[in-house]
């Protein structure tokens, strides 16, 4: 997806120091994601994560939440160029301190009698939920801050066989704060 220099499933905090969250309302048309990705690629802007889903207005618009590396290019450039894409309807820029950020993590962990108890402890302390279970494995879900997801991910490194997916974050302004357009 992006030219991110670090692997997505890193062992440390995924979030760069100077990240910004762009909440981008786009027309729900074929190729819109390619236009955004192509713009970031050709202008050398780095994307840390990207989440796309239909927006509140139904099928006509989608909301793309992009976590950008504001060190790869000035934010003003990224927003200005993004705004020129005809299918981009609105951009709001959320500074991390003003944003409520959440991310979904799903992980399936192979377990055995020896480690099942410690796994259950980790799940409980992270506030994650068990969503599927069988004799040899457990699937857990966590909806939390990106940092909370990072912590669970690190804790699960103790297990040999883990399949883990994260969605990338979505965000809204904190109450009393507004995003800048």
């Amino acid at each position: 997806m992006s030219a991110t220099p670090e692997p997505f499933l890193g062992t440390t905090d995924h979030t760069p120091v100077r990240h910004h969250i762009l909440s981008v309302l786009v027309e729900n048309k074929a190729g819109v994601l390619a236009r955004i990705a192509g713009l970031f690629a050709r202008r050398g802007f780095n994307i840390y994560s990207l989440a796309v889903a239909p927006a509140e207005s139904g099928a006509r618009f989608s909301r793309v939440t992009i976590v950008v590396d504001a060190e790869s290019a000035p934010l003003e450039q990224i927003v200005g160029q993004l705004d020129k894409l005809v299918n981009v309807v609105a951009i709001s820029d959320l500074s991390p301190k003003d944003a409520l950020e959440r991310e979904l993590l799903l992980a399936t962990i192979q377990t055995n009698v020896d480690n099942r108890t410690s796994l259950l402890d980790i799940i409980a302390s992270a506030g994650a939920a068990i969503v599927d279970v069988d004799a040899r494995s457990v699937t857990v879900m966590l909806a939390a801050t990106p940092g909370g997801c990072d912590e669970l991910e690190r804790a699960l490194e103790a297990f040999a066989d883990v399949e883990l997916h994260r969605t990338g974050r979505v965000a809204l302004p904190r109450l009393g704060k507004t995003a800048s357009a």
Partner: peptide
Amino acid sequence: IDRAEFNK
């Protein structure tokens, strides 16, 4: 007319 030119 193109604001992306500013400070580029």
